[in-house]
Simulated assay, not measured.
Amino acid sequence: MPHTHARLAGVTVHLPEAVRSTTETEHRVAASSAGFRPPPGLVHRLTGVERLHTMPDDWQASDLAAAAARKLLAETGTDPGSIDLLIFAAASQDMIEPATSHMVADQLDLRCPVFDVKNACNSVLNALETAHALIAQGSYRRVLVACGESPSRAVRWSVPDLRTYLSAIPGYTMSDAGAALLVEASDEPGVLGSGFTADSRSWSVGTLASGGSAHPRGDEHTYFRLDGVGLRRAFEQLGPQILDDTLERLGVGWQDMAAICVHQVSKPYLDQLADRFGLPLDKITVTVTEHGNTAAASLPLQLVRARESGRAEVGDLVALVGLAGGISMGMSVIRL
């Protein structure tokens, strides 16, 4: 008989010990660039990011995911042999082929089915939706979602001019991080539901173009490019309708949430988004200033911080609001 309910049984993050401040980033760009010097403090003024995490040189995205997953299995007392499915969910990946989930499963000594879910910074949120659906239809009882984000490998250090520097700034704010979520069948609903939308006409406002059929080779395509104004305009045009509709369908409101986790690109944009979409700032745990933009690991990181601070406890409702390049937007509501 299909299991109609799923719950979030655990969530962890792994943040690399090495930290790089935005000031150190500016110094490195200056040392690597002939004739160009970054305006002092510009990255911090534009984004609010003070520092971020960088993984060891010999690590890959799969290492970050596996580190978080090991911590999760230990904290929850879960036997790796009881995992029915592993989903690797991240904007990053070790290589084009095979799926990074295989590398993670190999490190964890798992023998279950695996696959990747990739949708930029909404990858974990879409993986949660996928796990919920697969458990609800009875295909699996226990799903491990593992995320490893390694954007430090796509940073442009040699910059010829200010225009290039401005387009490269997203790379200077993105942090390496791992995250893991355990989703399992339950008698009572834990994951209440999700809702998503997209405006794929805006896919070109933010890209990391290398490695696919469009640009299989060439260093110039290995760096982040972002039209910040275009991205904000795209999300503003999309509007909060999908969030409002999802809350109405589930019969809850923002005031019912103990915590609201929102993907965080920068502190100024988080403030603008909260005002535009009617999100109560006092329910949002800000992580982007101290940890940078951790891509798809952002929502798990905020949820962990909310639980550590006592803001969100067992039985509480939390909302996970995702924003991603492409562009896509969505949310999940969970009772812890």
Rank of each mutant, 00 (worst) to 15 (best):
G322M: 07
R28T: 03
T47W: 00
A258D: 14
S82W: 03
L162Y: 12
K283T: 14
P300C: 15
L279N: 10
L231A: 05
L281P: 01
V29N: 05
G138W: 04
L125D: 01
D244Y: 15
A120Y: 04
L8S: 05
I96L: 09
A185Q: 07
Y172S: 00
Q255G: 04
E236A: 11
S186Q: 06
A297W: 08
T173H: 05
H215T: 13
Q264T: 09
S175L: 05
L243G: 13
A234N: 05
P280T: 04
V205S: 03
G292P: 15
Q137C: 11
L281I: 01
G251N: 12
L273A: 02
T294P: 00
I284R: 03
L64W: 08
L301I: 07
Y269Q: 02
E97S: 15
Y269I: 03
A61Y: 14
G251W: 11
A198M: 14
R7A: 09
P240N: 08
L72P: 02
S101V: 05
R37S: 12
V321N: 01
G253L: 01
H215V: 13
A180L: 10
G251H: 12
D245I: 10
Y172L: 03
A319P: 03
S186R: 06
R111I: 02
T173W: 05
G138R: 04
